[in-house]
């Protein structure tokens, strides 16, 4: 996907700050985008990117490309990386979404679930040695006072 914004680099923790900064830039350059839409989109992007940082192999040496487009009806992004394929736990899927951990006091396992509920579309594909996460949030109408 070619987008309005592109970021390339290694999937290391420091790159997450670059993603935060990029989304801040999007907010400043697209004032018409609802703050809630961008906030939830940013939440999902950081979860997916954090997942790649944590689980991407070879660890610390996975190159990624992030493309983001601001469209009239949606925010869309694709995060692609050249790491190994992910072994996703499909059992955690329900109705096309990842479920929250059953244990309220679990200390991990919420990332994909949180990204799922923040987005309208979350899709993972492995094609030609490249992992691609597609993230879409439909822009909500602003309620007029």
């Amino acid at each position: 996907m070619s987008g309005d914004y592109t970021l390339r680099g290694l999937s290391v923790p420091e790159s997450l700050d670059q993603l935060h900064d990029l989304l801040q830039q999007v907010a400043e350059e697209h004032e018409s985008v609802e703050a809630t839409d961008l906030m939830l989109f940013e939440t999902a992007v950081i979860e997916i990117a954090g997942n790649v940082v944590e689980h991407g192999r070879p660890h610390g040496n996975v190159a990624w490309t992030f493309d983001l487009a601001v469209l009239p009806d949606r925010l869309a992004a694709v995060l692609s990386d050249d790491g190994q394929a992910y072994d996703l736990d499909e059992e955690q899927m329900a109705d096309g979404r990842w479920a929250m951990p059953e244990d309220t006091f679990a200390e991990d396992g919420r990332g994909l679930a949180l990204a799922s509920v923040a987005l309208d579309e979350l899709d993972y594909q492995r094609t030609g040695g490249i992992n691609s996460w597609t993230m879409v949030r439909l822009r909500r109408e602003v309620a007029q006072p």
């Binding site: 935060h20 939440t43 950081i46 954090g50 991990d108 919420r110 990332g111 949180l114």
Partner: peptide, 8 residues
Amino acid sequence: FVDSSGLG
């Protein structure tokens, strides 16, 4: 901003 690792 908080993410799932922060919640953990």
